[in-house]
């Protein structure tokens, strides 16, 4: 038995079967509630406290670094008051951090009220593990009423949508990821297209007819037709419009409205606002 083909190649065969299994998972997809989604949720839940702790450490480190730089300036001005000023500077940096956080949350609340959305706020506690995809980890999960497919916004515009969830954490696929797409239109010319992410950075507006009048600086907003993002939210501004070359469509580059790297708090839309049609019927 031990000298048999299967036994001799057991590692190779196991790895081969696992490769087939993983390709099967990629091709069929893992849906919430599937058996295959449970380990994912478990891993996300296990790492959430560590990520949250590291995020807090990073906040502290940032405060200390800010305090340090300000301390250097103070030292140049007055050496005698150095220690006292260090304390004041540290306190100020901390307060500035709290003020900035307060400002972010106030803006998010304002956005929620203006749009009439049912939404919850969450902190960003981590990024994509490989860096190849553009995803973020949030501090809120299914226990906060979140579900996969919900839209994620910031006061600067559209951030992305939730793709994975655990009881106390969730992952967001950013709109600039190369697997992301949403329905949008140019606010000035009303030209519609699909906003898609790219492998490196930035966004493109696909499938825009060549006859459309798009200009650099135009605002691109969500159409609401994809059923995920509420209508009229800022996606970005037109960076470049290329009419040269063959093809039926324009090549439109977009600068995202949101600075994804500096995101700290976001808003997750838990219930879509009623459509105009629904309001009319109501």
């Amino acid at each position: 038995m031990r000298g048999g083909f299967l036994w001799r190649n057991r590692v190779l065969l196991t790895a081969g079967m696992l490769l087939v299994l993983s390709l099967h998972l990629v091709s069929t997809g893992v849906h919430p509630g599937d058996l295959a989604a449970r380990p994912q949720s478990m891993f996300l839940e296990i790492l959430r406290p560590i990520d949250a702790a590291l995020a807090r450490v990073s906040e502290g480190a940032r405060s200390i670094v800010n305090g340090y730089f300000e301390l250097i300036h103070v030292r140049e001005d007055n050496v005698r008051l150095r220690s006292e000023l260090a304390q004041v500077t540290n306190d100020r940096a901390r307060l500035a951090e709290l003020e900035a956080e307060n400002q972010h949350l106030s803006e998010l609340l304002e956005l929620r009220d203006v749009l009439g959305l049912h939404a919850v706020a969450a902190n960003v506690i981590g990024s994509d593990a490989t860096g190849l995809s553009h995803t973020l980890i949030l501090s809120a999960g299914s226990s906060n009423g979140l579900k996969p497919g919900m839209a994620v916004l910031s006061n600067q515009g559209v951030v992305g949508k939730i793709i994975a969830i655990s009881p106390h954490a969730s992952r967001v696929l950013l709109i600039d990821d190369h697997n992301s797409a949403l329905d949008g239109f140019d606010q000035r010319s009303r030209a519609r297209g699909i906003v898609a992410g790219m492998v490196d950075e930035g966004l493109i507006l696909k499938y825009v007819d060549r006859s459309q009048d798009l200009k650099s600086g135009d605002a691109i907003v969500t159409s609401g037709l994809d059923g995920i993002f509420p209508r009229g939210l800022l996606v970005g501004t037109v960076k470049s419009v290329h009419r040269e070359g063959p093809g039926l469509f324009l090549s439109v580059g977009i600068t995202p409205g949101v600075d994804f790297r500096s995101l700290e708090q976001v808003l997750i839309v838990t219930q879509q606002p009623p459509h105009l049609d629904d309001k009319v019927k109501g």
Binding site: L44, D128, S180
Partner: peptide
């Protein structure tokens, strides 16, 4: 895959 990418199974592969 729980922390990266949008296709579960990709990193496993």
């Amino acid at each position: 895959d729980a922390f990266a990418g949008s296709h579960p199974g990709l990193n496993a592969f």
